[in-house]
Design a protein around this nucleic acid. Sequence first.
RNA 1: GGGGGCGUAGCUCAGUUGGUUAGAGCGCUGCCCUGUCACGGCAGAGGUCGCGGGUUCGAGUCCCGUCGCUCCCGCCA
Length: 599
Amino acid sequence: MHRYRSHTCGALRDSDIGKDVRLSGWVHRVRDHGGVLFIDLRDHYGLSQVVADPDSPAFKHVEKLRAEWVVKIDGKVRRRPAGTENAELPTGAVEIYINEVEVLGPAGELPMPVFGDQEYPEEVRLKYRFLDLRRDRLHANIMKRGAIIDSIRRRMKEGGFFEFQTPILTASSPEGARDFLVPSRLHPGKFYALPQAPQQFKQLTMIAGFDRYFQIAPCFRDEDARADRSPGEFYQLDIEMSFVTQDDVFNAVEPVLRGVFEEFAGGKKVTPKFPMIPYADAMRDYGSDKPDLRNPIKMQNVSDAFRGSGFKIFANILAADAKNEVWAIPAPTGGNRAFCDRMNSWAQGEGQPGLGYIFWREGEESGAGPLAKNIGPERTKQIAEQLGIGVGDACFFIAGNPKDFVKFAGPARIRVGEELSLVEKDQFAFCWIVDFPMYEWSEQDKKIDFSHNPFSMPNIEPERFLALDPNDNDTILGLKAVQYDIICNGIELSSGAIRNHRPDVMKKAFAIAGYPEEVLEEKFGGMLRALSLGAPPHGGIAPGIDRIVMLLCGEENLREVVLFPMNQRAEDLLMGAPSEVSQKQLRELHIRLSLPDSK
RNA sequence: GGGGGCGUAGCUCAGUUGGUUAGAGCGCUGCCCUGUCACGGCAGAGGUCGCGGGUUCGAGUCCCGUCGCUCCCGCCA
């Protein structure tokens, strides 16, 4: 017999009755009745009930076992007495009568129990991650993650993509996030950077003629964490394709994502054909470039109903600047004062002066609330008709420059949907966001800057782009890039683009953003050289693996789907990273510390 | 860098308008129990109330500071 086990803890069935078996695993739960003693023995594969009574030679040893000890037991499989079977367990028809027990790995008192489903503080969970990972939910999440990645790989390969590995130690690049730096021992004063993404490498792979690239790629960014943004490192399904248009990318990627989601959604609906929403429409309808389409509310411009109306606050805002508008957030079924007041005080909590509203109820079909009285029944009716709402419904209004107020309007729309339970949770609602602006005005630097990835192709004829007057801000700020995002349930899974593969266009693009050719040459010299020596048109995308797994596991936080995550301050409490290093190590790297003052 | 929430036993939490020896469940220790699967019963150990300072006759409770965790903003595809 094998030193540790003849079967796993999830394997035994009634067909095994009478066999002498050996199991190894963790003591999940002990139920000691004095005369008879049950242990649920757990391993990766499942749970088996093992039992001992005073007739067993092992009884006095079994009595000493405690939760999470690792033990090996020898025993005989027997049918459970009639009426004591456990239908919850695949092994529930049988039990193993213990003849011998060996302790392989005892455990001290546990800082957090594995049994049960009580919640524990992150700090304890992360410090004892290996205990947390023994628990059902996390164990299942991590296994599901693996299955999802397998499925993605299979689907990508079926789509004619090949998997590549790209360097982890590379050069710092000026755009995007803060880099993690790695000092060079051989080159004093110089540093490698960990890649924020293999962006340039995948483009170079296309230029090298490989045609269809993918990689489950680790990415490193030294930025602060969020619930849906791991600190430091995360994985992307990195994809790049040659000789493609935007549609080709969509047609390659959409079936992979839809297929993976359908496979792992557990019966939840998945958008059959992802709609394409221009960036400007998304901002206007949803107040966000990552709209949660499970929420049916669409906002509308109702400026006409307020222009020159008796509601002076809004009328004056509209008169003050042609760019100002009044937007309506329709709130179907929200037609009561209590709800409207609740939204109003929520808005005040968000730092707004308030949230104007009209609601319609029986007996006041022409609209109730102070705002309705100010603008009169005719304009109120006009609004109701435009929005297609009526008795039982409400509507909220926001006035000003949409550019500024979307930051509040978007969350307000989400809030209305949540409060009124209009959000259909049992689905994965996808969409593409397309036609992103190429440039934006940087208030901070008082200049035009790239609004997304600087390697994206502007969405106009190259000759017209090259002919642009760099001082023609209006035209430049109106330019679109062939740049797209994919959104699921309001979470941005990815962004991608058709790349700028023409050096002349790239030089011009950087010049408009205020980067002289020398900077471009210095920072992206390799890339420019590559583009100058026969670059195919190419493009791609890079969906976030962790976010995909998070959605499919129904989790709200990335830490629930990452094997060994760091905490919000980018510390690994289990391994103790980051840590101090020895003077010798620093000397080898020609580094002297200059620490901030601390008391 | 900024804002919100939390911090009481190993763990999860309760703790009244400031008032005597700070409680419960799980876990732990000991005893009892031959069919449980959240087994049950009895007894017991275990607490600088995150830390520092202040107000007060008296602080877990009020005030100030500080530290830790977390969520968000900034930042970031």
